[in-house]
């Protein structure tokens, strides 16, 4: 009996982990792309692009990710768009966290000193060169710690996908509880798994940070 329960829990968690990790990774990739597209769009020279970006950022920051995922999954079909649960989850999480990321991108880029732009002008760089070789390499490391926090937030938010019939870890743990009446074990395991995922993200962000640090070479 006890072994059965442990095996049951192990299978449940493993199934759930697959969904949670896939959502976290793919959601983060989408969030990263959105963060750059709309973060740059927010400070673009063209008014229309700025308006679209501000609209996206404010709408997705100002409404709950819960409702957003709900909309993607339950409301869009009314407009003839039937997204799979998995795609709805990735879109909801990615678009939501991407909106926060866009503000991170914007502020990191705007934190670049005026003297840097003036040097670039004096050295006859084009706008693109200025951005690509001077602004972005300085701004990107500034974004990383906050991006890391956002990714953790996204990972923790994956638990809302049980709403749209995806069986992530939290959902699996809850199903396990309802099946077996056990509460301590599934929640302890769930807690541990989330914490391990958190450590994984931390490690990933630290590695990227180390890679982007400017390197001086001792001669």
């Amino acid at each position: 009996m006890t072994e059965n329960i442990v095996l049951d829990l192990f299978c449940s968690v493993l199934h759930g982990l697959e969904i949670t990790v896939a959502l976290t990774v793919l959601g983060s990739v989408l969030a990263f792309i959105c963060a750059f597209v709309f973060g740059l769009g927010r400070i673009a020279r063209w008014r229309l692009i700025r308006i679209i970006s501000v609209f996206y950022i404010e709408v997705f920051r100002g409404t709950s990710v819960f409702v957003q995922v709900f909309w993607l999954y339950y409301a869009l079909p009314a407009f003839g768009i039937l997204l799979s649960p998995f795609l709805s989850g990735i879109l909801g999480l990615g678009l939501n966290v991407g909106a926060y990321g866009a503000e991170v991108v914007r502020s990191a880029i705007q934190a670049t000193g005026k003297d840097q732009y003036e040097s670039c002008c004096a050295l006859n760089f084009t706008r693109y060169q200025t951005f690509r070789y001077i602004v972005l390499p300085q701004a990107f490391p500034r974004m990383l710690p906050v991006f890391g926090n956002n990714m953790v937030e996204l990972m923790k938010a994956t638990s809302i996908v049980s709403l749209i019939s995806l069986s992530d870890i939290t959902f699996q743990a809850q199903q396990f509880r309802i099946r077996t009446g056990q509460t301590f074990l599934p929640f302890a395991v769930t807690l541990l798994v989330y914490f391990l995922l958190y450590l994984g993200i931390l490690f990933f962000v630290q590695s990227v940070t180390r890679l982007t640090k400017p390197k001086s070479v001792k001669v």
């Binding site: 840097q116 040097s119 004096a122 300085q138 400017p214 390197k215």
Partner: peptide, 13 residues
């Protein structure tokens, strides 16, 4: 142009 506050690029050697 050479500026009062140098304007070097801090991320480059």
């Amino acid at each position: 142009m050479v500026f009062q506050h140098f304007g070097l690029f801090p991320h480059l050697t």
